[in-house]
Amino acid sequence: MRHVIVTGGSRGLGAVMIEGLLADGYRVSTCSRKKTDNIARLEAHPEYGPYFFWQACEVGEADQVDAFVEAAVAWAGDDGLWGLVNNAGVAQAGILASFPNVESERIIKINLLGTIQMARAASKVMLAQKPSENQGGRIINISSIIGTRGYNGLSAYSASKAGVDGFSRALARELGRRQITVNSVAPGYVATEMSSTLSPSQLKQIVGRTPLGRLADEDDILNAVRFFLSDGARMITGQTLIIDGGIST
């Protein structure tokens, strides 16, 4: 059974990803700072429970990240580690001139440094796997079209996500020889808690400018993650796949 770590699975996109991947037959580990009812439900789920692992972990704190990956891999036993989906992230809007530096630091620490820390811990596990055990691997970093396009009031967030895309490209070069692919999935606007600060008129405007005429939903992002995790995506690395209904084209 292939084991995949998805960070930030307690709610939003991550919650849909972990349930979708469990349904696909993956063994799934996740972390978040707080446990939600959804996590408790999956732990007790008759079908998914035995293949599901959650542990509290603050992404951005390297020691906690190392401890979480170690615990998840120990739990998975012989299944080792096939994939990592760096999904945990935070956003905070504000015009930079009046945006506290500590907020920028927090965003960069969680979104960018946290992604780097997780990928480091996971790639160590993937590299130490014997080719005969679990050959290769998949690292998928969730970035955002805001990292490629920018958005008024989200400069630190945008920087963190552009950083994630650059990180994917460089790490793809490093790990390619071992058949470990590294890609970014860049969603447009998805209706989750994170995007709930957008006003109805802003949302209407976004939908109006989207060729496909709607916001992406969580399943649209899950499907891209599914693809990158699959064997069919084995020749694709260092890419950023934008899922935004065409708004940024």
Binding site: S123, K124, V125, L127, A128, E174, L175, R177, R178
Partner: peptide, 13 residues
Amino acid sequence: SLDLATLVSELEK
């Protein structure tokens, strides 16, 4: 360098 990173990962294991 990738072989060395692999070596260090295996030694850690």
